[in-house]
Amino acid sequence: MKCSFCDNELDLDMLREQACGACIGGCRKIHCPYCGQENQLVPEYLDRLLKRKQPKE
């Protein structure tokens, strides 16, 4: 996944494990460690829909 603000590649596995400050997590958002942008995690069903629609290479 790329950050929607600065375009840096985000390591989702690592970032998912880190909660923000005192937050308990579970907000379905990922903060970009480079610029701070709050990126929404795409729900799986939308992700599947997106992948299905991508042209075959």
Binding site: R28, Q40, L41, V42, P43, L46, D47, L49, L50, Q54
Partner: peptide
């Protein structure tokens, strides 16, 4: 278009 729709729908779900 795909990116815009996915982002919009994700935020609306939120």
């Amino acid at each position: 278009v795909n990116n815009v729709l996915v982002k919009t729908l994700t935020r609306m779900q939120w």
